[in-house]
Design a binder for these strands. Structure first.
Lengths: 139, 139
DNA sequence: GAGATTAGTTAGTATAGCTAACTATATTCT
DNA sequence: AGAATATAGTTAGCTATACTAACTAATCTC
């Protein structure tokens, strides 16, 4: 396949994948950017707003709003640091729980879709994900 | 790899892929949902608003606004049909050109990222993109 | 201690998603 | 034929997510 066709279809497939998964995520009443940011804190550990913005590839004001939403929902907590300009963001117990529940729903819905694939293809998909992560880092 | 880990990482990788590509797309002054909808019309041919909404997995009011944006930018045109409730949406020459330019930018940026992969991996990525499309359809 | 840098917020704008409620046209069923 | 129903899109109103520009507060540098 042509690289240009791969680029197009990967782009399109990603858009559609996220649109489908968003329907699941809406059940939790939390948006995709909030989930993604929360996941960084839960799986990657607490960090500052700027670090979180960088990890998520968005600008600080954007992350600032995402965090406000997460705080309002009681999923993330701010802690002071010795540098009083910085905040340390950490997930609350509720945030961790909500994230795992959302993950569970996602897995269930993906598992359903995986029924059309055999075991080898599932593993290939895992491999694709790694390739995709590698590409994203270089982009 | 565990299906749950695949689900998580695929979700996360897709979010980040789109965020990176959006930076390229912003150069065209057209948002990602508009690009995606326009691509359906350019590559898949003209169709009604409802059909386009379905192809793009969004609700009709959402597509209605996307189309307004595309019209305002002179990228899409409305045509009457024999059923006067329906509209036939078709890309303008400018729309087709803009789409191809955006695609070119995307391919260039992705091609750069593909340098970290060897030829075999690129082909795997192409194959696995098809797998992803298949899953999205089942989701 | 003055000036520069850094971290985050506020303000303002645009896109993109939803549901609910509406208009206009077409179809169906007496 | 005319009434009821169904279908296609739009409008209104809400929320989330993204940006840049401009701001405040704290820290660092000289």
């Amino acid at each position: 396949m042509e690289p240009s066709a791969i680029a197009d279809r990967l782009h399109s497939a990603s858009i559609h994948l996220l649109r489908r998964l968003r329907a699941n995520d809406r059940a939790s009443g939390i948006g995709p950017a909030q989930i993604s940011a929360l996941a960084v804190l839960v799986f990657g550990g607490p960090r500052s707003l700027g670090e979180l913005a960088e990890a998520e590839q968005v600008r600080p004001p954007t992350m600032s709003r995402i965090v406000v939403g997460l705080e309002r929902a009681g999923l993330v907590r701010r802690r002071e640091t010795e540098d009083r300009r910085r905040v340390r963001l950490e997930p609350t117990a509720k945030g961790t729980r909500i994230l795992h529940e959302g993950r569970k729903r996602r897995v269930e819905s993906l598992t359903g879709a995986l029924h059309s694939l055999n075991e080898g293809e599932v593993q290939q998909l895992g491999h694709l994900t790694e390739l995709l992560e590698q590409i994203v880092r270089k982009l």
